[in-house]
Nucleic acid binder design. Structure first.
Lengths: 223, 223
DNA sequence: GCAAAAGTGTTACGAGTACACCCATGT
DNA sequence: ACATGGGTGTACTCGTAACACTTTTGC
C-alpha cells in the first residue's frame, strides 16, 4: 500500500497583540492560491520529529532550541489530498515574535495570519488545514493552563506583564495583573528572576525573568 | 517514498481490580514470542479511525458504539520495525470488562495483562510498544480528571461505587467514598439516575446510573 | 443485633477573586 | 506633580477534605 507521509506545522507566534499562525500561499494545484500550513515529506531515514524540526528551520529560520515543538495529531482521510494517499503528522510550534517576511529558503510566499481571521474564513485554507489549525489552537489554549509553555512565546528575558499578554492574547480574555503576578511568581520553577530590570514597557521598572525548569504548573493558571 | 501505515490499539479494561491492557503474542519474527499491541495495516481507502474500529472489533468483538476510541499519538522512527518503514497511528480504547479469551477471528493468542506489570518488564513487549503503552496510560489517567471517560469502563448501568473503583484502579489511589459520591452526582450531565437500585455489592441498595451527555467535567474529579 | 455498604451534614482549610493601596520610573 | 505600569496586602468566597452520623440491606 503506497502511502505518502508528511509533516505539517502549526506555528504560532504573537504579533501586534494577536495570535498569528504561519501559512504559505500555494503556487500550484490543487488549492492553487489558497493558504496552507507549512510542511513537507518525511525523509526515508528521517524521524518524524526531525522532519518537523527541519521544516521549521526551513520556513522560519528558527534554530532547533529556540522554539517549542510537539506532536499535535495525525490526519489521514483517503481524500484529503486529491492526488495521492497522504498521511500527515501535524506538529505544533510556539515561537517568539519573528520578522514578517519569515522568508526561508523557499521561494514561496509565507506570511503570518491572525489565527482567528484565518479560522473564521476557512475556505482560504487548503486541504483539511482548517481542521488542523482548529485542533492546534484548542491544544495551545489548554496547554497554557497547566504547562509553562507560554514562555515559548516570549523572548529569552521577559517581564511578568509580557507573559501576561501572551495569556490574554491566546485566551482572548483580560486577566487581573496583580493576581496574575502573584500566581506566576509563586508557581514553583515557572520563572527565575535574573536580577535585572527593564523600563521598556514604561512605568515602574519591572523584574526580568527567564523560564524555569518546571514542566508542569502547580497550581495551574486558570482562564 | 514507500511508507507502510498501521494502527495500533491500546485497549484498557478493568479486571480483578486491576487496569489491564490487551496484547497478542507474536507468532513470527521479529520479536517472536513477545507480546504486542493489537493492530494492523490501514486499508487503501480506509480512514484511520475506521481502521482502528475494525481492529477493535476483530480483536475484542466489541461493537462500534460500546467502547470509547480516540487517537493517541503517532510513532514513526525509521528503525521501529526492522523489516520496513512503518508509521503507526496509535489509538486508545476504554472498554467494560470482557471475557478472558478476548478471542477474535485471529488465531493469535490474545490476553489481558495488568498494565503495570507489562510496563515494569517492558522487554516482554515488541517494537516500541512499551513507549506507546506508557503514553496511553498517562493519557488515560489525565483524562479521567476532566472528562466523563471513566464511565466507558463500566457496564451500561452502574453504581457510584463501581465508578469510584475505576478511578481508584486507574490512579492507584484510594478516594473518600462520601466526597466522591457528592462530586460525581453533582457534576452536571455526568450521571443520570435510572431510578432503580441494586444490592449486588452488598450493604444498602445503591442507585443505578447511566452516563450522561456531558463531554467535560466541571469541576474536575481530582486525584 | 451486627456487619457492610450507601448516602447526608458539618466544619475547617486553602486557593482564587476583587480591589484598595503603595512603589518607582519618565515627562 | 502626575501619568503609567509594577507589585503587595487583605477581606471575601467557594470548592475541597476530613469525618461524624444516619439509612438500608443481608446474615
Amino acid at each position: 500500500m503506497p502511502f505518502a507521509v508528511t509533516v505539517d506545522l502549526v506555528v504560532f507566534t504573537i504579533r501586534d497583540e494577536q495570535l498569528c499562525v504561519l501559512a504559505v500561499r500555494r503556487g500550484v494545484p490543487p488549492y492553487r492560491g489558497r493558504w496552507a500550513l507549512p510542511g513537507g515529506f518525511v525523509g526515508e531515514e528521517e524521524r518524524l520529529l526531525d522532519a518537523a524540526k527541519r521544516e521549521l528551520v526551513e520556513e522560519t529560520g528558527l534554530d532547533d532550541a529556540s522554539a517549542h515543538l510537539e506532536q499535535l495529531a495525525t490526519y489521514g482521510d483517503p481524500r484529503r489530498d486529491p492526488r495521492l494517499r497522504v498521511v500527515s503528522v501535524a506538529y505544533l510550534a510556539f515561537a517568539a515574535a519573528l520578522p514578517e517576511p519569515a522568508a526561508g529558503a523557499d521561494a514561496a510566499d509565507a506570511r503570518w495570519h491572525p489565527a482567528a481571521r484565518l479560522l473564521a474564513d476557512r475556505k482560504r485554507l487548503a486541504f483539511d488545514h482548517g481542521a488542523i489549525l482548529e485542533d492546534g489552537l484548542e491544544r495551545a489554549r489548554a496547554k497554557l493552563e497547566y504547562s509553562p509553555l507560554a514562555t515559548a512565546f516570549c523572548a529569552e528575558e521577559f517581564t511578568v506583564a509580557e507573559l501576561r499578554q501572551v495569556y490574554e492574547v491566546v485566551w482572548g480574555a483580560r486577566l487581573d495583573p496583580r493576581n496574575f503576578h502573584r500566581k506566576v511568581t509563586g508557581a514553583d520553577g515557572f520563572l527565575v528572576p535574573i536580577g535585572r530590570q527593564t523600563t521598556r514597557n514604561g512605568g515602574r521598572p519591572a523584574q526580568l525573568y527567564r523560564r524555569g525548569a518546571a514542566t508542569l504548573l502547580n497550581p495551574p493558571i486558570t482562564r
